[in-house]
């Protein structure tokens, strides 16, 4: 399967130039860009690991591309995303989030059904990758 979280997952995988263009758009809007990675892509796994702090005062998206590539050296077999954070009043949250790296094999998710009373079903989604211990989930 292809994990389609994020702003651009239906487009072909991003090149460094794609990353730079989109990150520069965010920077020019005044948003702080950061890099995060995970080996548990569950749709409600909110907190991916931070690759350093958000780059609050960075004017140049080349620095974002550099950090993505540094992160790839250590976590190249996992999911990496770029996030843009907007601190302006009334928002104070994420404005963009797009995946820039994914494992070669994406095993996806198991849907677990617990049959309840009547015809109700309680659903749980589990990442197949999370069956293995943290750190050993992808090559």
């Amino acid at each position: 399967m292809r994990l389609t979280q994020g702003t651009f997952s239906f487009l072909p995988d991003f090149t460094d130039e794609d990353i730079r263009l989109q990150a520069q758009y965010a920077i020019d809007k005044g948003w702080a860009v950061s890099v995060e990675w995970t080996d548990d892509p569950h749709p409600r796994n909110t907190y991916w690991e931070m690759w350093g702090h958000p780059m609050f005062d960075n004017p140049d998206a080349a620095a974002v591309v550099y950090e993505v590539n540094e992160c790839r050296k250590e976590h190249g077999g996992k999911y990496i995303r770029v996030i843009a954070f907007d601190a302006s009043p009334g928002w104070e949250s994420i404005r963009m989030s797009f995946i820039v790296n994914r494992p070669k094999e994406e095993p996806g998710f198991r849907l677990v059904r617990q049959e309840g009373e009547g015809r109700t079903v309680r659903y749980t989604i589990q990442s197949y990758s999370a069956d293995r211990p943290e750190g050993a989930r992808y090559a």
Binding site: T4, Q5, P41, P43
Partner: peptide, 9 residues
């Protein structure tokens, strides 16, 4: 839930 599991969204 099926669609969520199929896409991760």
């Amino acid at each position: 839930n099926r669609a969520s599991a199929a896409t991760g969204e």
